[in-house]
Design a protein around this nucleic acid. Structure first.
Length: 422
DNA sequence: TCTGGGGTCCTAGGACCC
DNA sequence: TCTGGGGTCCTAGGACCC
């Protein structure tokens, strides 16, 4: 598909903006959204509460000005910004709101691709006709977001002839930027960017490129194709294309997508324990909780898994993981748990303290597990069914296994209102 | 009491089969 | 007495994204 026009829309300080929109107390203050919620952690950490073992998922604009950055440990963030308010994130809420943003975008084009919880790509070739039209769409989207969500929810928008360029453009001006890269400006624009600005080049790849003598996009373009392929495989060829601003990936419309629904690849949860532990019983309790959470998501989405992987991270930050395949698909928490626990027992002898435990269900397909012939299992299935109904209606905190008590990892209820008049 | 948690994709090596 | 070779599946691990 030649000469297409793409928009990349990236919400600014998204999680923090959502919380500030929902809670007037947080407005104008440096806040850092952290990665986890737990019964033992309150709504907001006070000086009397310990700093959670987490990182900053999103810093508010006020916090960024004071030096707080994404992925910084909460401990470090608090050190450089003592007034920082640490606030537990609510991924489900952010995802729900993002669905509504995407609905807004679909008012402008049916080719919308959600890329992450706060980013989407739009193909506006048909609706915009040209770059001026695309800019008008971008401004109209910005107006819609402001009208429907309030002043605090802003986005940076990039417009270009490929997805990779639209993203590079959008991320070049934050917050609230609008950057258009016309086709004949592509190379000059790319050459103003650093290698790591490209989605796909992280610290390791950048280091490997440096070893080859490539420190900018101009050098990447002129580097022999065969040598890049030798060093990075197919990925090397992709990198070279990206250095020219080319990207063959397209966006399929929601209608086309609904005809060929994609199955998720994996569903998982992991948890950093409040304290490192060498107590197998404690790890077991957390693992059981995680398995029940994963199993619930599988059942809710009508999925079964034919593989489970379990992993641990030790106090020294080294990690280990293993996976196991099932003959028959399952969405049962106890089945996941039994397998995950036997893996963990293989990986850890509990002489080294454990920091994190996690599980992931994979080899997913849509369907239901085969019904059991055994009466006891049939009863358990009915019980699970009933609990699922309760959970759908009243939320995931409505029940817990007795064996997992004191270890409940639960979400918090949503406080966000789409209307900014709170 | 420095380093979360949710994913995706790719590669490489071993087992196994024909 | 010299271990082919192609294909597929399984598993571990690494790298990236947000």
């Amino acid at each position: 598909m030649a000469n297409r026009i793409y928009l990349h829309i990236d919400m600014n300080s998204y999680f923090a903006s959502v919380e500030q929109q929902a809670n007037p107390f947080l407005r104008g203050k440096p806040i850092g959204i952290t990665g986890k919620r737990d019964d033992n952690e309150t709504h907001r950490w006070s000086p009397h509460n310990p700093i959670p073992r987490s990182v900053i998922a999103t810093a508010s604009r006020e916090a960024k000005k004071l030096g707080v950055k994404t992925a910084m440990s909460t401990w470090e963030a608090k050190r450089i910004c003592p007034s920082l308010i640490l606030y537990p994130g609510d991924p489900e809420k952010y995802s729900d709101i993002m669905h509504r943003f995407n609905a807004i975008y679909r008012g402008f084009t049916h080719r919308v691709e959600p890329f992450s919880v706060d980013e989407s790509f739009l193909d506006v070739t048909e609706t915009a006709q040209d770059y001026l039209g695309a800019a008008c769409i971008a401004l109209a989207i910005r107006e819609c977001l402001r009208d429907q969500c309030g002043e605090r929810i802003t986005a940076s928008i990039g417009i270009a002839g490929s997805k990779v360029m639209a993203k590079l453009a959008g991320e070049s001006v934050k917050p609230n930027g609008l950057t258009i890269v016309l086709p004949d400006e592509t190379l000059p624009f790319i050459d103003t960017r650093d290698l790591q600005d490209l989605c796909g080049i992280g610290p390791r790849i950048e280091r490997r490129l440096h070893v080859l003598g490539i420190t900018n996009f101009a050098q990447l373009r002129t580097f022999p194709r065969a040598k890049l392929e030798e060093a990075f495989g197919r990925y090397g060829l992709w990198l070279r294309e990206a250095a020219f601003g080319r990207d063959s990936s397209t966006i399929i419309s929601s209608i086309e997508k609904s005809m060929t629904p994609t199955t998720p690849k994996s569903v998982g949860h992991s948890y950093t324990l409040p304290r490192d532990t060498d107590d197998p019983r404690e790890v077991k309790r957390y693992l059981l909780c995680l398995c029940d959470k994963v199993a619930w998501r599988l059942r809710r989405d009508g999925l079964i898994a034919r593989r489970v992987s379990a992993f641990v991270r030790f106090a020294d930050f080294s990690g280990a993981g293993q996976q196991r395949a099932f003959r028959e698909g399952t969405s049962d928490g106890m089945t996941l748990f039994k397998n995950a626990w036997s893996i963990i027992r293989n990986l850890a002898d509990f002489t080294d303290p454990i920091r994190l435990v996690g599980i992931s269900a994979a080899d997913l397909q849509y369907g239901r597990p085969n019904p059991s012939l055994f009466l006891k299992e049939q009863k358990l299935t009915r019980l699970t069914h009933a609990l699922d109904h309760l959970q759908t209606r009243y939320g995931s905190q409505v029940w817990s296994r007795a064996a997992a008590l004191h270890t409940i990892i639960k979400p918090r209820s949503s406080g966000f209102h789409f209307d900014h008049e709170l």
